[in-house]
Design a protein around this nucleic acid. Structure first.
Lengths: 139, 139
DNA sequence: CGACCAGTACGACTTTACTCGAACTTAGCG
DNA sequence: CGCTAAGTTCGAGTAAAGTCGTACTGGTCG
């Protein structure tokens, strides 16, 4: 089918010279290595961060963009975990909540960590299961 | 130091040209980033690995050397977790089981990771609680 | 207004991890 | 042999995480 790739990259809504406020997140100096490593130790979250790092485009991405075949509530859970650990920053743009990696903060506090994540090659090429139609899955 | 620093570094037992076999561990090519990060996401284990990296001496260290005030069974648990994740290698020397970080394997698979861990400065300088006398704690 | 859509909140369940005591194993030593 | 010491194994209790369905919220657009 794929009549309309509704969740793929499309122009950001007008940002009237000021971005929306980021959602609550730890400050750079409060980032803790154990916490960040813990956030990255989940396969799905590692996938998300890698995808953000590797397929970086000009814009942030809503969580539907990742094409992950999991219930929406699970995605919320994992994005929240990443944000609260300080790995990603999220902003609300109308309906969607867009995410990007906090590369500046992470490079400052844990230099080399993101390069490591970006350079790593996953073992399971088919992870995670991709979107299929039907069910109560993520839109 | 205390009068009887029984667990501090002392000469290794004679190794008759062949080291004891390492305990079961994943091969280099089976190391998984998620697993390694998960192993390092525990504060106590991160402390252990850091201590091994920073105070590296000529010899491997038995787990009593770390001076951690926790029950012996807890230490076994954490050292086993590190070994099964592929972070450390353990060998049996008579009574004691000595550990060292698998720097070669980790640098090969995840370059920069150990430098990151070594460079990081822990927030809590008093972690973990040090040895005190009494109780059923680690000897 | 009303339908729709992205995403959240909540709650239940399951799984995993951490923590610890107690009993056991094994090596070295007198 | 019998003691001590280093460490394991087992089992239980508890806390944290992952999973997912259902209901809800809040923009957007006809």
């Amino acid at each position: 089918m794929t009549p309309t790739a509704r969740t793929s990259t499309r122009p950001q809504p007008p940002e009237p010279a000021g971005l929306p406020e980021p959602l609550p997140e730890p400050a750079r100096e409060d980032l803790r290595l154990e916490t960040v490593l813990g956030a990255l130790s989940d396969p799905l979250r590692l996938f998300i961060v890698r995808k953000l790092l590797l397929e970086r485009e000009a814009f942030d991405h809503p969580c539907g963009w990742f094409g992950i075949d999991r219930p929406k509530s699970s995605l919320t859970h994992h994005f929240k975990a990443l944000r609260e650990a300080g790995v990603i920053r999220q902003r609300q743009y109308g309906l969607e909540r867009r995410s990007h990696v906090r590369t500046d903060d992470l490079d400052a506090r844990f230099p080399g960590l993101l390069d490591l994540v970006a350079a790593w090659t996953p073992v399971d090429a088919d992870f995670p299961p991709r979107i299929r139609k039907g069910g109560t899955r993520a839109s």
